[in-house]
């Protein structure tokens, strides 16, 4: 059974149809990379899975629960899937620890002591146990992104959505974030990630989705997609002839 079932999803902004019928099934423990040109609808798709955008047609089912755009269903959905953003979006008025504790306390009503224990554990997991009391301002981009990952993990999601999580980072900081993601993948976390890191996609992902003009243009194992692109669009995107 698939963990995330996306069926014939359509999404319009005004009369600009950004997703034109997307169907993808993600199995538990799978790591799916989404690649494609700018504007092809990658972010929009992830945002729909997380309920940040409403869909116009089709269905998204996560762990058997249908996505519906009301507060109760949205909250249930978001407790199942976490999201990591390109711009980190840490809460600047809270410490790293505070960032990881907040949603546990207000959404899950976890007692403060337990939330703190979880926060320490999660920060340790991303290698930042010593930064518990640092404000986002005092952290490098890579560290901020790792805190964001810890923050999402603290909610114990069954899947993580990552939207170009290394694109805002200086090149030398990319590796430390990818290492964390790789470890998560190894531990069996289900991941759907939009990425431009082709090498990473090839090494870590179980499947690659190439999106083009709001459609899934090609989908397959990384070896196939990267070594054996079938369509001219993907060939052009990968820069091979």
């Amino acid at each position: 059974m698939s963990l995330i079932a996306i069926t014939e999803v359509k999404k319009r902004f005004g009369d600009n149809e950004v997703l034109k019928g997307i169907s993808i099934d993600v199995a538990p423990g799978e790591v799916v990379a989404i690649i494609g040109k700018s504007g092809s609808g990658k972010s929009t798709l992830l945002r729909c899975i997380n309920g940040l955008e409403t869909i116009d047609e089709g269905s998204i089912v996560v762990a058997g629960a249908q996505f519906l755009p009301d507060e109760v269903h949205l909250k249930a959905l978001r407790l199942k899937v976490g999201m990591i953003f390109q711009q980190f979006n840490l809460f600047p008025h809270l410490t790293a620890g505070g960032n990881v504790m907040l949603s546990q306390m207000v959404v899950k009503k976890t007692p403060k002591k337990d939330a703190e224990a979880v926060a320490r554990k999660m920060l340790d997991r991303v290698g930042l146990a010593h930064k518990f009391d640092a404000l986002p301002d005092e952290l490098s981009g890579g560290q901020q992104q790792r805190v964001a990952i810890a923050r999402a993990l603290a909610m114990q999601p069954i899947a993580l959505l990552c939207d170009e999580i290394t694109s805002a980072l200086d090149p030398e900081l990319v590796a430390e974030v990818l290492a964390v993601v790789k470890e998560l993948a190894a531990e069996g976390m289900t991941l759907v990630m939009v990425t431009h890191e082709m090498r990473f996609a090839r090494d870590v992902c179980s499947r690659v989705v190439f999106m083009h003009q709001g459609r899934v243009h090609e989908i397959g194992a990384p070896e196939d997609v990267f070594s054996n692109p079938r369509t001219p669009e993907l060939r052009q995107f990968l820069g091979v002839q």
Binding site: V106, A148, R151
Partner: peptide, 25 residues
Amino acid sequence: KGQWEASASLGMGYLQQMRYVILPQ
């Protein structure tokens, strides 16, 4: 906008977002 989205993606409702994330800033 990212502050709204990040807090929403963590499952917070409107009043929680306001109370803990938006208003303090």
